[in-house]
Design a binder for these strands. Structure first.
Lengths: 127, 127
DNA sequence: TCTTGCCTTGACGCCGGTGTGAAGGCATAA
DNA sequence: TTATGCCTTCACACCGGCGTCAAGGCAAGA
């Protein structure tokens, strides 16, 4: 299949697929034309990439998963390198969750304080 | 006080302060030289900016807080515009928390699956 | 006077994933 | 033959909050 078809089937753009190739994630054969030729396995690889991107991985982190798939495994995350990345990312996400929770708390406090402030002002000078 | 002193007192850089000015957040007077001259109120404004940035606000969002401070309020978040931004940001943060929690769940599941997978493989072919 | 150290404006670089052109080749149908 | 529609590579644009360098002015001490 050509790049346009793969792009459509994977829900992305040719530009994006060329970028993944530039980053060493996708490896199409070439027709005599120079046209990129993809097989169904590559569609799976692209799906794996999209899913991991949506989960906040960077393209660098995704490499081990793709290699794992390409090695014949039924899932990209069963290989040691991929597991290491998973662990690292999990710790990272936990960190973000902690930070975001703190931020949320501060926002909440400030909102309450603002509401309180308005009530006091309205007691002194009704509104 | 000159830009270098304010930068040091606020824990940032002159470049950053010039950028805030370019974005309309800080308004120094000018000496006859052309040098920027800041008073203590501006130090407070810069602190407000740094705090809000650390909580994930963009510089655009921060404007209402600065205006509120500049209007003589004891805190930047008591004015209606600032409250609106706070609410919006709170909703945004809640969204991120939901997303991150989902991601965390998926990572967790994948890790467990990978461990399980290895155990099965090791049963069949001890390692 | 010369040096040092602050100040000024202007402008490019970064990151990461992709959009969006430009300029041209190939394939196929009318 | 020509029009259309895919493909190719190259390369700039974007976002946001700065870092960093360049080229030059001002202030003050040795």
């Amino acid at each position: 299949m050509l790049i346009g078809e793969l792009a459509e089937r994977a829900g992305t753009s040719p530009r994006t697929l060329r970028y993944y190739e530039e980053q060493g994630l996708v490896r199409p054969r070439r027709d005599a034309n120079g046209y990129r030729q993809y097989d169904d396995a590559e569609l799976r690889v692209v799906h794996e990439i999209r899913t991991l991107l949506a989960d906040g991985f960077g393209l660098d982190d995704i490499k081990p998963f793709v290699d794992c798939l390409r090695a014949g495994n039924e899932a990209g995350h069963v290989c040691p390198d991929a597991v290491a990345v998973l662990r690292r990312r999990l710790a990272e996400v936990d960190g973000y969750l902690t930070q975001l929770t703190d931020v949320r708390q501060r926002l909440h406090d400030q909102l309450n304080q603002a509401i309180e402030h308005r009530e006091i002002r309205c007691l002194m000078n009704p509104c």
